[in-house]
């Protein structure tokens, strides 16, 4: 199963490397949204709750783009039938798609977080983020598993572009609460990281529940 998943993942990554469709679009989108926030809030630099909220809401919106493109190549070129005809375990398919989305998100954050620091954070806050990678990693697991589940749920619907954000964003509210609240003290500058463990635990619990649910129900999606 792991081997099958790795093969599908390799295929997806190769397509992404050659077409450069999802990740650059997501990165461009986040930078644009930062510019929008700059003008919308009329602030040159942010800190605390506002900074953490802007960072995470932007990442969540970029995830919507990644999720709605997750099965795009298969759908547009008909590869999905071949994939489903092949004796491939659906769990392997889920793992591959979630892993692909996870890697896209990591690649996105490599661009988006420094861009955020550069464009919107005050100069003294930029290098005060030692815990941020842990929060990002935990959040990405949740984003990737919920994202892959939602992408599969929406694939058979007629109004896919509508269903994905409407379904994904409310599902991500607990993740946003955990991630934004964990990041907020880091961006306040006074380094009092109170309650960090609690929100990391919330993120980890969210990840565990949704990975398990997705693995359990994925068998019933994407058949025939």
């Amino acid at each position: 199963m792991i081997r099958t998943a790795a093969t599908i993942l390799r295929k997806d990554l190769r397509i992404e490397l050659r077409t450069r469709e999802s990740v650059p679009a997501m990165a461009l989108f986040t930078v644009t949204v930062y510019v929008l926030f700059h003008f919308g809030l009329d602030r040159d630099s942010l800190d605390g709750e506002l900074a953490s909220g802007v960072l995470w809401v932007t990442l969540l919106l970029a995830t919507v783009i990644g999720v709605s493109r997750l099965f795009a190549t298969e759908r547009e070129q008909g590869g999905i039938d071949a994939l489903l005809l092949a004796p491939v375990d659906r769990t392997a398919l889920f793992l591959a798609k979630a892993a692909a989305l996870f890697l896209y998100l990591l690649a996105l954050e490599v661009v988006a977080v420094p861009a955020f620091g550069l464009l919107l954070l005050g100069p003294d806050l930029v290098d005060t983020l030692p815990e941020l990678p842990a929060i990002l990693l935990l959040a990405d697991v949740g984003l990737a598993s919920v994202g892959a589940l939602v992408a599969a749920l929406a694939i058979e619907t007629r109004a896919r572009e509508l269903i994905v954000p409407l379904l994904l964003l409310p599902l991500l509210v607990p993740l946003l609460i955990g991630a934004a609240s964990a990041t907020e003290p880091l961006l306040r500058g006074d380094q009092a990281a109170e309650g960090l463990g609690r929100f990391l635990a919330l993120l980890a619990a969210y990840d565990a529940v949704f990975v398990l649910i997705a693995v359990a129900v994925f068998d019933f999606l994407l058949d025939d």
Partner: peptide
Amino acid sequence: YSSVFAIAAGAFVPINFVAVRL
């Protein structure tokens, strides 16, 4: 697909309550 949604959303209900309360 509706059942899958019902299951995922049903599990989401308690998680969401804990998160908002936190």
